[in-house]
Amino acid sequence: MKKSTIINLIFVLAIGIALHLLRKAGFINGYYDHILTKICMFIIAAVSLNLINGICGQFSLGHAGFMAVGAYIAAIFTKNPGLIIPEAIAGMPRFFVALIIGGLMAAFVGFLVGLPTLRLRGDYLAITTLGFGEIIRVLLLNWKFVGGASGYFGIKPYANFLSVYVLAVITVFIIQNFITSSYGRACIAIREDEMAAETMGIHTTKYKIIAFVLAAFFAGIAGGIYAHLMQAIMPRDFSFLVSVDILLMVVLGGLGSTSGSIMAAIFLTLVTESLRRFQSLRVIIYSLMLIFIMIFRPQGLLGGQELSVSMLKEKIKLLFGRIKPEKGYASTNGTE
């Protein structure tokens, strides 16, 4: 591991511990606790979608579908003690095992969806994943075992802030490591020029599928967390609009930037929560926001750059040093 990675990790740990202590001391009440957990869940969803849409340059609209798979599968396992996972594994350990099974199931479905589609160039993936999301929803509506349209209830609230925070950190760690590795460079090459990447010996279909399946896995994990946070899930919780919300996070943060996705996930979750009482307004504000991004900062907040502790240090040095800071730099305080 590089030194900068370790510094970032320490920074992230410090934030986690600080938030945890604030909760313990009673400064963060149940409602904010819920929102913090939700933020972490959306971070997992956004960072994984960024892997497909931002890094690999493929346009997927199916994240809600993968989240639905993860949510229902994980919930089935925590609600039915003794189902496949031995009964001895109960409580939190059962939750984690259920999450992983949900993630693996989502990854498997991702593989089935990606295999025929990712061979093709162009917009086929957007269309297929859009259809896939709807198919999953219709299947769930008609699956009596998980309650059909009325929903699946009585899921235990295993998803607390601390556990989900740790899961988010692990997710970001793994995905960011992948992106900076040679495999990640291969994915970026596909985004930049598919034909040139192929000619350089990169099996483009294979790497697109790897990225897609990896993203589907983490979307499944996010879905599992959602189920155990809300304690009840319905097929309409995973509508196309949820995929769009997550896509908006990725675009707002800057396609290809993990830290951008994280910041946008935090920001948009807060906006959504504060507008909870004005549902119809939310749609308008989101649309306006999207239009403003496209006009004023089409590359997103970070424009594909990564924010890190060392980079913040550089910027601060620049700010107080002799050199004048660059004008128009998006001033944001990140958590990566």
Partner: peptide, 10 residues
């Protein structure tokens, strides 16, 4: 570096 990818062993 991208062109080296096909020789990566890890």
């Amino acid at each position: 570096k991208i062109a080296y990818h096909q020789h990566v062993k890890y």
